[in-house]
Design a protein around this nucleic acid. Structure first.
Lengths: 219, 219
DNA sequence: ATCAAGTCTGAAACTTGTTCTAGATTAGCG
DNA sequence: CGCTAATCTAGAACAAGTTTCAGACTTGAT
């Protein structure tokens, strides 16, 4: 039988994903493989934290993580895949952090805005890392759709969490979609220096109004 | 004195731009230079229409437009610059087209949604071209900010046109910003196959509600 | 313990964006 | 016209993402 894992082709790259969780449902990795994967993601985040998207060079990631270039590509079929996976990783971490101190706002809109601003502040602490992750996310083509979708689901989960809404209406889900759009695009404009932090704040607060507008008890 | 133009360095690449118009304010180009520029943009759009972002290869653009590679880079300092300029070009064209038949909707929100859906339909006719332009736009880094800003201004102008609002309030401008965010991000999700045309429509209509919400005579 | 199948490594090769160079061309001025 | 500075061209060279390959290494099954 196989070797380090019983996968067929391409290392267990996160394929189809379970309905909710962030955990890939693909064949399990051996310990050593799991360790390699971690090393790679760590190196990726570290290099990204330095110089952003451009500083994440595949050869360097491979070297930093003590893995051959070919192996890196087996785990992550492209630089974009790698960075999107890095984002998944960071997002999970952030969701955990955010869960701990739930937002205080009185309305759902306030809580969502507060949560997103908290996330934004976290990103501001590592602007280069944010740059690498967000640029990869929006540049991703169809071949990365499953992974990008996963990030999107995770983001949706964070927002719904903040809303404290168990069973959102379709209208509310639309509002959440629009909020995500705004969130990503506002980050882009901030990262490329075309919008200030204050401007991003305003945009987030503006779009969050949609939540109240679509609240089940609303207008 | 100089040759084909009296520019200093880098061909008259659109620098600072006048307050409103889309016309670059830089030193004028010779006829031959203007012609070269047109050929390049045409080749860019043509290649993009075929295979999208990846199909726009600088060597091919240079060949198609009968220009040396070095010259291409003198006119457009990077592939991203080129594609963003291509977008400026197309946007101008589209703004002209849209002006002709103003939207019919009763409310500003309806008119904006109608206008954006009209633009969306136009993009659907050349999805590959849309792919190239939008991907370039969101991937652009700081070095392209002036040009991307110009595109943003043009988009804002189209939306304000549709609103029929001469003197928008700051709140309305915020709403317009959020609409633009949603517009760009929704296009991205559509282009990468993660959202359907119907979904994009819903998102546009949802975000356009913000306009009524912020109307001067509104709530 | 042995073996077959799959994995990892190291290095070279290939692709495409970007830069550089030497020489031919062009524009405008005197 | 003839000059000069800038532009254009052809082509090589460089950089980083991606692919490929032969051989060494692991793993799990027999």
């Amino acid at each position: 039988m196989p070797a380090e894992a019983k996968v067929s082709a391409k290392v267990n790259k996160p394929a189809k994903v379970e309905a909710r969780a962030a955990v890939p449902a693909s064949p399990p990795l051996t310990e050593r493989q799991e360790a390699r994967r971690r090393r790679i993601l760590h190196a990726s985040a570290q290099l990204a934290s330095r110089g952003g998207f451009d500083a994440v060079q595949m050869r360097e990631v491979a070297e930093s993580s003590q893995v051959a270039l070919g192996t890196l590509y087996r785990y992550f079929p492209s630089k974009i895949h790698l960075l999107v996976a890095t984002m998944q990783d960071q997002l999970e971490h952030m969701h955990g952090t955010l869960r701990k101190k739930p937002p205080q706002g009185a309305t759902a809109a306030e809580r969502v805005a507060e949560t997103l601003m908290r996330a934004f502040r976290a990103l501001q602490r590592e602007p280069h890392l944010a740059d690498a992750m967000v640029r990869a996310l929006t540049f991703a083509d169809r071949s990365v759709s499953p992974e990008v979708d996963q990030v999107s689901r995770q983001t949706t989960a964070i927002i719904l969490d903040a809303m404290g809404q168990e069973n959102p209406t379709p209208e509310q889900l639309s509002a959440v979609r629009v909020i995500e759009h705004t969130w990503h695009s506002a980050l882009i404009t901030w990262l490329s220096g075309r919008a200030s932090i204050a401007q991003v704040k305003i945009d987030i607060e503006t779009v969050c109004r949609l939540i109240d507008l679509t609240a089940p008890t609303g207008p």
